[in-house]
Nucleic acid binder design. Structure first.
Length: 112
DNA sequence: TGATTGACCAACT
DNA sequence: CAGTTGGCCAATC
């Protein structure tokens, strides 16, 4: 088991562990990795997710406000919202409804 | 090789 | 209350 090849792989692992109908935030992932403050890197990882061989449900990752900041990176402005609504997650005004309810904290759920 | 930017967040002014 | 700054790491110019 090699060490972390890169910061992105760790992010992908976590994102892949997000259960159906749940969402998390960039900051939560970064913080779980002990990189609080580098939430921007999580965004970069998401940007690279589409190049990864794995299918990364990046639509389950939103900003701290539950806002779909990266919706434009899905190939379309509506794609992200559509994907979320497909998982019974309601999105209104580019924002996840009841975000706190759908919020999935890796630090608590993964329980390393 | 140095400077800039990037799907963020929190604190400070 | 809104705009600015600092912070973190990696990739692009």
């Amino acid at each position: 088991m090699p060490l972390k090849e890169s910061f992105f792989d760790d992010v992908f692992e976590i994102v892949l562990k997000i259960p159906y109908g749940r969402v998390t935030s960039y900051g939560a992932i970064a913080e779980y990795l002990g990189l609080r403050g580098s939430a921007r890197m999580v965004g970069w990882a998401m940007n690279a997710s589409h190049t990864s061989n794995r299918n990364i449900p990046a639509h389950r990752v939103v900003n701290r406000n539950g806002l779909l900041t990266g919706k434009h990176h899905f190939g379309g402005p509506n794609v992200m919202q559509q994907l979320l609504e497909s998982e019974k997650i309601k999105v209104k005004n580019d924002q996840v409804v009841k975000f706190e309810k759908h919020f999935w904290d890796p630090a608590k759920e993964i329980a390393k």
